[in-house]
């Protein structure tokens, strides 16, 4: 019986959310406020069970047990700095919360420099010059196309050059401090927009069906999981 009640409640919530598409209404408001509360409550539980206990309390107890003074001191300082966040409750001392923020932002920034250069910049440029050990500007493939013109040899011949040109023009599009009448900027602008819009469109289209199927999933829940439960109970 419990399962049926809970499932029915879930169906009610699902329909309440969908009702928003027609108009804002009390059912939606109810579901929304319920969700807001539940999500924060869940966050509290997760923080306690998955962060505080395993990553603060246990290591602290562990390092005290094993007499690792340095490590326990380090954790205690961390907790103390974390507590400074709570100063936000006071108007007078809220600036104390800047300490944890400075640490998080500083460390995060410093930590991001090398990986972002490596993974997002150098590696990407590398694969714009060679792919699978082969040069993207491959004259052999272009010659092959003229010898034997076909769709697949055209694809092979243009693949590398088109890719390289695309990356370069898009990169140039995001120069900010050069004037627009600079010929390099001027003539690459339209091709760059062309590449980007085709790319964005593709990403849009690619996701389209996945999003539609989310709705289908919800309907499935109501029609193929909840409804049979009710039917069984009624019959």
């Amino acid at each position: 019986m419990g399962t049926i009640l809970w499932s029915t409640f879930a169906v009610f919530l699902t329909l309440s959310i969908f009702s928003f598409l027609i108009k804002d209404n009390p059912f939606y408001k109810f579901a929304e406020h319920l969700f807001a509360g539940i999500s924060v409550g869940y966050l509290v539980v997760i923080t306690f069970t998955q962060i505080f206990i395993p990553r603060v309390w246990k290591p602290l107890m562990n390092s005290i047990d094993t007499g690792n003074i340095l490590r326990s001191a380090f954790l205690i300082i961390g907790v103390f700095i974390g507590l400074l966040y709570l100063s936000r409750a006071s108007n007078k001392y809220s600036w104390l919360s800047r300490y944890p923020i400075s640490i998080v932002v500083g460390f995060g920034s410093g930590f991001a420099i090398a990986p972002s250069l490596n993974a997002r910049v150098l590696k990407q440029l590398h694969s714009t010059v060679v792919e699978d050990g082969q040069s993207l500007l491959n004259i052999q493939k272009i010659i092959a196309f003229f010898r034997d013109p076909s769709f697949s040899s055209l694809y092979n011949a243009t693949y590398g050059p088109l890719l390289v040109i695309g990356v370069l023009v898009v990169l140039i599009y995001f120069f900010f401090s050069f004037k627009n009448d600079n010929p390099v900027i001027k003539y690459t602008r339209t091709p760059a927009l062309l590449y980007m819009m085709v790319g964005f469109g593709a990403a849009f289209g690619y996701t389209f069906m996945a999003r539609i199927s989310l709705f289908v999933d919800r309907m499935n829940f109501i029609l193929n999981r909840w409804w049979p439960l009710i039917q069984n109970k009624l019959m």
């Binding site: 440029l125 010059v129 040069s135 993207l136 004259i139 370069l168």
Partner: peptide, 29 residues
């Protein structure tokens, strides 16, 4: 910085055509 990287990439593309892989192997790796 981006302009320098662009220049290096274009140089790498050209040198790669004539079989020199220095930039690819050591700079843009």
């Amino acid at each position: 910085f981006k302009a320098v990287l662009l220049a290096v990439t274009i140089l790498a593309l050209i040198t790669n055509l004539i079989g020199i892989d220095f930039i690819i192997d050591y700079i843009l790796k």
